[in-house]
């Protein structure tokens, strides 16, 4: 029996942005924004992509949305390869993957009314039959994201950040997408609004069976709504696991450092923090071997020359660290 293919499969995704310079405008260097990323998302599942800014997590999201051509790799949506798909067919595939952006202010066209913003995908995909049907569908979407009905005749600047994010979610829901890429969708909101939007996304997922690719730098938020977590560092996935596994038994030193940075709402709690030294190296000239070796507290010679592969370290738990090579290795000190 063949198992059903996941909704989204990403194989060896690479995106290098050329840097042009010199007086002839030739390519002088590349930004290795995403350098070989592989994961999949099942129907109705949430996968979180976490990492520091500049690690390429948003680029992965935009690559899945086909907002640019990939350098290398394959992306399958419901078994169909979309990274090489022609524009005409791709346009109809687009209704299956939608996006909610980080900045609730620049993600809505300031010169369009909410009605037109939410109706745009419906019209594009020919999903409304006549003006009345369109209005009904827009009103139903407003209800889904819990915005008042009279909101549809207003302009985006009349709303707060959280309300605007709801409008963005309504637009993403409009074409009946299977997968929504949430690119830092709640990062710009304050804590109470953030919780509302996270709950709304979780409710919508239950209701509509949506799959979410939740891109975030905030592990504390991710813990509330994700099924699985992929940790990215400098264009690569360094660890991929179920939420519980990852939060309970993180393997990769980078994941441990990230987790130790998550604030705990208890001022008396004594914790051992892993403070990483220095900055993320430039993706223009990534370090040799393991990309994390310049900041890793457990670095040894092999890390500088040999790049560790992403290998299973447990049930559905992948990690890319030389220390994980022997299962249950005692070399790995427990930091948390």
């Amino acid at each position: 029996m063949i198992a059903e293919r996941p909704l989204l499969e990403v194989n060896g995704l690479k995106k290098h942005f050329p840097i042009r310079g010199g007086w002839l405008g030739g390519i002088t260097a590349n930004v290795y924004a995403v350098d070989g990323v592989t994961f999949d998302i099942n129907r109705g599942e949430t996968l979180s992509l976490v990492g520091e800014s500049g690690c390429g997590k948003s680029t992965v999201g935009k690559a899945i949305l086909r907002l640019f051509k990939l350098t290398d790799g394959e992306v399958y949506l419901a078994g169909e390869r979309i990274d090489t798909m022609r524009a005409g067919r791709l346009r109809m595939m687009r209704k299956r993957v939608q996006v909610v952006f980080q900045d609730p202010f620049s993600s809505l066209n300031p010169r369009m009314r909410v009605r037109d913003i939410v109706a745009e995908p419906l019209i594009n995909f020919g999903m409304a039959h006549g003006r009345k049907d369109l209005n009904d569908k827009v009103a139903a979407l407003m209800e889904k994201v819990r915005l008042p009905r009279d909101a549809i005749d207003r302009f985006p600047h009349e709303f707060s950040g959280g309300q605007r994010q709801r409008i963005g979610i309504a637009r993403a829901l409009a074409p009946g997408a299977d997968l929504i890429v949430c690119d830092e969708a709640v990062s710009a909101l304050d804590v109470s609004v953030k919780a509302q939007i996270v709950n709304l996304l979780a409710d919508l997922q239950d209701e509509l069976g949506l799959a979410l690719l939740f891109i975030s730098h905030d592990l504390a938020t991710v813990e509330h709504l994700t099924h699985r977590v992929a940790v990215m560092y400098l264009g690569k996935i360094v660890e991929l696991a179920d939420r519980r596994t990852l939060f309970a038994t993180p393997h990769h030193p980078y994941t441990r450092a990230l987790l130790s940075a998550v604030p705990v709402p208890d001022p008396t709690a004594k914790r051992q923090r892993i403070i990483l030294k220095g900055d993320v190296p430039s993706p223009i000239d990534p370090p040799s071997g393991c990309r994390f070796h310049t900041r890793c507290p457990f670095v040894f010679d092999r890390c500088r020359t040999e790049e560790p592969a992403l290998r299973p370290v447990g049930d559905k738990h992948l990690s890319a660290c030389h220390l994980d090579e022997v299962p249950g290795d005692k070399l790995l000190p427990h930091a948390a």
Binding site: L67, N109, E120
Partner: peptide, 11 residues
């Protein structure tokens, strides 16, 4: 982003 969102919604 709203232009990218428009592309993603098939405009």
């Amino acid at each position: 982003p709203y232009v990218e969102a428009a592309i993603a919604s098939g405009t």
